[in-house]
Simulated scan of single mutants.
Amino acid sequence: MIYRSLMFTPGTKKERLLKSVSSEADALLWDLEDAVHMDDKEGARETIRQALDELGDGPAKPIFLRVNQYGTPWYADDVKLARHENVTGIMLPKAESAAQVAETWEGMGASGELIVLVETALGIIRLEDIFSGPNVTGVAFGAIDYAVDADLTLTEAGLEALYARSRIVTYAKAAGIPGIYDTVFPDVHNGESLRTRAASARALGFNGQMAIHPKQLPIMHEVYSPSRDEIDWAVKVLDYAENEAKGAGVFMFDGKMVDRPIIEKAKQIYSAGERYQLIIGG
Rank of each mutant, 00 (worst) to 15 (best):
M91H: 00
V116T: 06
K80R: 14
I168Q: 08
G71Q: 07
N190Q: 08
A174Q: 15
V79F: 01
D77W: 07
N68Y: 01
N190P: 08
P73A: 06
L117N: 11
V169M: 12
Y171S: 12
F141K: 02
A95E: 01
G176L: 08
A140V: 12
T155V: 09
A82K: 04
A102I: 11
S193Y: 02
A164P: 10
K173W: 14
N86Y: 08
D145M: 08
Y75S: 07
G179A: 15
E160S: 13
R167G: 04
R165N: 11
L117D: 04
G89Y: 05
D187S: 12
A76D: 07
Q100A: 09
E106Y: 06
V136P: 04
W105P: 08
D149A: 14
V139K: 01
N68L: 07
R165Q: 15
Q100S: 10
D151G: 03
A102E: 15
F131I: 00
A121Y: 03
G123E: 02
E128M: 03
R126T: 03
E128R: 11
T88N: 00
L127N: 04
H189K: 15
A95Y: 03
I168Y: 10
V184L: 09
T183M: 03
V188S: 06
V139D: 06
A102K: 15
V148T: 10
T170V: 13
D77I: 01
R126P: 00
R165A: 09
E160W: 06
E96P: 02
Q69W: 10
A98Q: 13
L122H: 13
T170Q: 15
